[in-house]
């Protein structure tokens, strides 16, 4: 067992599950989408990205790319949320569909990441 692989797999999967947890629920109901969960998803996704730095294999490069996409989508979601409620003075209910759909995009990228990880593991003959 390789501790590095455990940590790496842990963060990739945790990024996916947190993202999924945030997106789940009615798209326009603020009660179904908590800010803490989005925050956790962003942090874990950022750490997962850093863990993918410096891998020279082709698989590593694609994993990094999916991770960067997820980061971008999640940060956009947080930015849109903060912009709408604090700067424009709107309510959570109004902006929630945009935030959740952006986070939903990130979910796709995280799923791709996890699938790649599983493929890599399956291809390993040890």
């Amino acid at each position: 067992m390789n501790l590095e692989k455990v940590v790496f797999g842990f963060f990739v999967l945790l990024a996916l599950t947190l993202n999924f947890g945030f997106v789940m629920g009615d798209i326009d109901n603020p009660a179904h989408h908590h800010a803490y969960e989005l925050y956790a998803a962003i942090i874990v996704s950022a750490i997962a990205t850093v863990l993918k730095f410096g891998d020279r294999s082709h698989m590593g490069a694609v994993l990094l790319a999916t991770s960067l996409v997820a980061d971008l989508q999640l940060l956009m979601a947080a930015f849109v949320w903060a912009m709408a409620t604090h700067v424009m003075g709107g309510t959570d209910a109004e902006i929630m569909p945009s935030v959740v759909s952006l986070a939903g995009g990130a979910l796709l990228a995280n799923v791709a990441s996890a699938v790649l990880l599983i493929i890599e593991t399956a291809a390993l003959r040890r």
Binding site: I43, A46, I47, V50, L51, F53, G54
Partner: peptide, 12 residues
């Protein structure tokens, strides 16, 4: 990037 992994994670 490989060398900067640990410090970046510490910062995050």
């Amino acid at each position: 990037f490989r060398r900067m992994r640990a410090p970046l994670i510490a910062l995050i």
